[in-house]
Design a protein around this nucleic acid. Structure first.
Length: 296
DNA sequence: CTAGGGTTAGCG
DNA sequence: CGCTAACCCTAG
């Protein structure tokens, strides 16, 4: 009777996506319990979150594969504010007051298309939207997820990480996946997002890129929490993890965009000797980080 | 608690 | 009248 279909607002939708970015899809209860999101989503149940995410995923899928649905949900994602959003999310996680709506995050992607690059398929005009964001960002997310959940002080070796990814995506991994995983780990280490101990990888506690505070005409001065009154290790760690993931994701997009993806095979090779490209990506990212302002 | 299938209300 | 999105139900 009193349930005339409550449509999801943009704010609720955004909160859901941020929650998924933070905890991962499937952790609906966690998202719902998070004070940052429970405010916005108080009228939604964890089941509602799941259903909404399913709809979102379906829409995104029909959008990336074949435009069967003229759903102008996300015609173009904006990779730029990703970094700024990371800060916003981080602040939101540490602050008692819920986050302002953060517009960021690529469309939800559930089905991982490994995209068999093992055999050179004839011609595949990639002039369409490169689907690198599917496997790429998911893998990065899983890496951070795996490393942040492990109890091992020295982190995990590549085999363990691969097993974790494999568990999360059964039957969706190819020979190339392991190669790509190795390359990604290597790059994350080079970017000092991770550190390598022995044969294990672990999260590095200093994922934030330090920028000069000299030239700043931001509308809002950056709100960095000083660990003076911080007694919340969990939230801080979560924030760091999320920030690290988002930063890596943003850089990854830059990386792939700069290379104008062609074949995963070629990519793997380039990864081996593209440290210079990483520097470039870092510079581009820094530029963004300096110019990008937290959305008011 | 979550994933997935089924049902129904709103809209073009 | 068909489709999509919110809602509901149930097995695992």
């Amino acid at each position: 009777m009193g349930n005339p279909k409550q449509k999801w607002t943009a704010e609720e939708e955004q909160a859901l996506r941020d929650g998924v970015a933070k905890y991962g899809a499937g952790k609906w209860k966690c998202i719902h319990n998070d004070p940052a999101f429970s405010i916005v989503l108080h009228s939604r149940s964890n089941i509602d979150l799941k259903d909404k995410w399913r709809n979102l995923s379906a829409a995104a899928q029909g959008l990336t594969t074949r435009s069967r649905t003229p759903k102008p949900k996300l015609p173009q994602d904006t990779p730029l504010p990703a970094a700024a959003a990371a800060v916003a999310v981080a602040v939101a996680a540490a602050a008692p007051i819920p986050a302002p709506p953060v517009n960021v995050q690529p469309p939800p992607v559930v089905p991982i298309v490994p995209k068999p690059a093992t055999n050179h398929v004839k011609e595949e005009p990639v002039k369409d939207i490169p689907d690198v964001k599917t496997g790429a960002s998911d893998t990065a997310a899983l890496i951070f997820e795996a490393l942040s959940t492990t109890k091992e002080p020295n982190g995990l070796d590549i085999g363990s990480i691969y097993s974790y990814v494999e568990q999360r995506n059964p039957g969706e991994l190819t020979q190339n996946s392991r190669k790509l995983l190795g390359g990604r780990l290597r790059r994350l280490v080079l970017q000092e997002k991770l550190e390598k101990i022995e044969n294990c990888y672990r999260l590095k506690k200093n994922p934030l890129v330090e920028t000069n505070a000299s030239n700043r005409k931001d509308v809002r001065p950056r709100q960095i929490m000083i660990p003076a009154q911080l007694k919340i290790n969990e939230s801080l760690e979560e924030a760091a993890k999320t920030a690290a993931y988002k930063v890596a994701e943003a850089e990854e997009k830059t990386y792939f965009a700069a290379l104008s993806v062609r074949e995963a095979e070629r990519l793997s090779k380039l990864q081996e000797e593209s440290d210079a490209m990483l520097q470039l990506a870092q510079e581009i990212y820094d530029t963004w980080h300096n110019n990008e302002v937290v959305v008011a």
